[in-house]
Structure formats: structure tokens, C-alpha cells
Computed example of a mutant assay.
Amino acid sequence: MYAFIGYIIVYFSVAFGVVLGGSMLSGIAAVLTLQSPVQKMLMISENIKIWAMVASVGGTIDPIRYIESQMAEGHLNPAIKQILYIVAAFIGAQMGTSLIQAICKGGEQP
């Protein structure tokens, strides 16, 4: 059980970190290239979300193939765990995007 919770935390954190780090670095790059950092960060945070999930769970097709093989053999527990890992990665990526949006909205002038 502790290993399962540990993996949930790791997948969440990796997806969150990919979105946050990628967006922040794109903001720095935007400043260096004389572009709007707010617009660039918002755009990157939305576009990188799916890739953050992919990076978190370790590949594009392997987790799906694992779910399919376990379900075909009648083993629901491993398949459900893998689905929960993907959900944790999605939540992490979404929270990273929400944080970037909150940071960027706070910097706008009315």
C-alpha cells in the first residue's frame, strides 16, 4: 500500500513539475526574445499538459498496453492501479496549469 501511495505522489509531482518548470522557463525565454512572458507561459502551460502526463507515467503506449493485458487476463487490480496513476498525473498537470494561470493573472494590470 505504501508503494502505491508513493507512486501516486511521484506521478503527481513529476507532471506538476514538468508543467511548472516548462512554463517558467518559457517565460524566461520570452523575456530574452522580447515577447510577452505572460502569454507565452499561459500558452506553454496548456500545450505541455499532455506531455507532462506522458513523461510522468513513463511512455505513451506502455501504460495503455499494460491496462489492456491485465484486463484481458481478468486482473482488475493492476489495471485499476495503472488508471489511478494516470489520473494522478492528470491532476498534477492540471494543478500546474492552474498555478501558472493564477501567477499570470496576478501579474496583469486592470
Rank of each mutant, 00 (worst) to 15 (best):
F4V: 14
I5L: 01
Y7H: 13
I9M: 11
V10N: 12
F12V: 07
S13F: 03
V14L: 14
F16Q: 01
V18H: 03
V18F: 14
V19N: 05
L20E: 05
L20A: 07
G21Y: 09
M24R: 14
L25D: 07
S26F: 00
S26G: 07
G27F: 02
I28T: 11
A30D: 04
V31W: 06
L32D: 11
Q35V: 02
S36F: 05
V38R: 11
L42K: 08
L42R: 10
M43S: 09
E46T: 13
N47H: 08
I48L: 10
W51E: 03
W51C: 07
A52M: 03
A55C: 11
V57D: 02
V57I: 15
V57T: 08
G58K: 03
G58L: 02
T60E: 14
I61A: 14
P63K: 14
R65G: 08
R65A: 15
I67L: 08
I67D: 11
I67S: 08
I67R: 02
E68L: 13
S69K: 12
Q70R: 12
Q70A: 06
Q70V: 11
M71W: 00
M71S: 15
H75S: 04
I80M: 11
I80T: 12
K81M: 09
I83N: 02
L84A: 12
L84F: 00
L84Y: 05
Y85K: 04
V87G: 08
F90I: 13
I91S: 07
G92R: 01
M95E: 08
G96P: 10
G96S: 05
S98K: 09
L99F: 08
Q101N: 15
A102Y: 09
C104M: 14
K105E: 15
G106R: 10
G106F: 04
